[in-house]
């Protein structure tokens, strides 16, 4: 069994109008919950769509659990939940489950039905009448009914209310704990991912900006607060000054003379995202 869930080498996707991904090389380990963070248009959806085989990259390659995405549908061990949770609106929940069973030879009907029951959605309800939260739970049940080893969720919490966000996340984490699935979860709301994800892939402008184990990354970075006259250390990601005070995020160990704290995931990610924006601008 491979220990690499996604293995990208110089992965590039060029659209007619600009770049989707540029020369992305990274490896995501199995058994982890990886956060895919980036602003809108950073290439998060493009990356997931290439992994499912929906898109063919214009350059480089990617392997999903050791196999290149082919023409024979999405890798059986990979489940994908697209951002708009596409389900056939005219189908009932029961019919959607049947569709899942018909389209997937490894379908686990009992498991999918249990997830629907836990979501408290009636089986005879039309998909078109479901609330955003219910719809996401059904889409998740169908994605997990394939019994994937890797599940990729593209902005699963966008357009959900806070209660629904929490329920969807709890349900997902419970299944991950039970099955040991590998998860890749994208969001532009970093707060949703903090405390959930233990691996990070940060994209901006189609490039990998930061990538690695979350705890390692946090340990390797410091937020430095001090007088603006102090000398900046090597590895500055972002420096801001307010009045006489400077706030710096840098890839460094403790720097004497500064007030050193370890950043949170959100602080770390935002600093990297802001710094790439400044370079681009």
């Amino acid at each position: 069994m491979t220990t690499i869930a996604l293995d990208a080498t110089a992965l590039t996707m060029r659209y007619r109008r600009g770049w989707g991904l540029r020369d992305c090389t990274f490896q995501l380990p199995t058994g982890r919950i990886s956060a895919l963070i980036g602003p809108n248009g950073a290439g998060k959806s493009t990356l997931m769509r290439i992994a499912t085989g929906l898109l063919r990259p214009t350059g480089g390659s990617i392997e999903v659990l050791g196999e290149a995405p082919g023409k024979r549908g999405t890798n059986r061990k990979l489940a994908f939940l697209a951002q708009d949770k596409p389900l056939y609106k005219g189908f009932t929940v029961e019919e959607m489950l049947k569709a899942g069973a018909k389209l997937n030879p490894d379908w686990d009907s009992g498991y999918a039905r249990r997830l629907v029951r836990e979501a408290d959605v009636p089986f005879d309800a039309k998909v078109g009448t479901l609330s955003g939260g219910q719809r996401t739970r059904i889409a998740l049940a169908i994605a997990l009914g394939r019994r994937p080893e890797l599940v990729m969720l593209d902005e699963p919490l966008a357009d959900l209310d806070p209660i629904a966000r929490q329920e969807v996340m709890q349900s997902l984490l419970a299944e991950v704990a039970e099955t040991g699935m590998t998860v890749l979860l994208s969001s532009h709301v970093i707060a949703d991912l903090d405390g959930v994800c233990d691996h990070l892939l940060l994209l901006a402008d189609g490039r990998v900006q930061l990538h690695g184990d979350v705890d390692d990354l946090l340990t390797q970075h410091r937020i430095l607060i001090g007088s603006r006259e102090l000398v900046l250390p090597d590895g500055v990601v972002e420096a801001r000054t307010t009045g006489r005070q400077a706030t710096v995020l840098a890839r460094t160990t403790d720097v004497p003379g500064w007030d050193n704290t370890e950043p949170s995931l959100e602080e770390l990610a935002l600093a990297y995202l802001r710094s790439t924006k400044k370079v681009a601008a």
């Binding site: 499912t52 085989g53 929906l54 023409k71 024979r72 549908g73 999405t74 059986r76 489940a79 994908f80 697209a82 708009d84 596409p86 389900l87 056939y88 609106k89 899942g100 389209l103 997937n104 030879p105 490894d106 394939r146």
Partner: peptide, 14 residues
Amino acid sequence: HGTHVFGLTQSIGR
């Protein structure tokens, strides 16, 4: 409706 994404990300070929 975006539902082709559902159909094409199951275990059947395009």
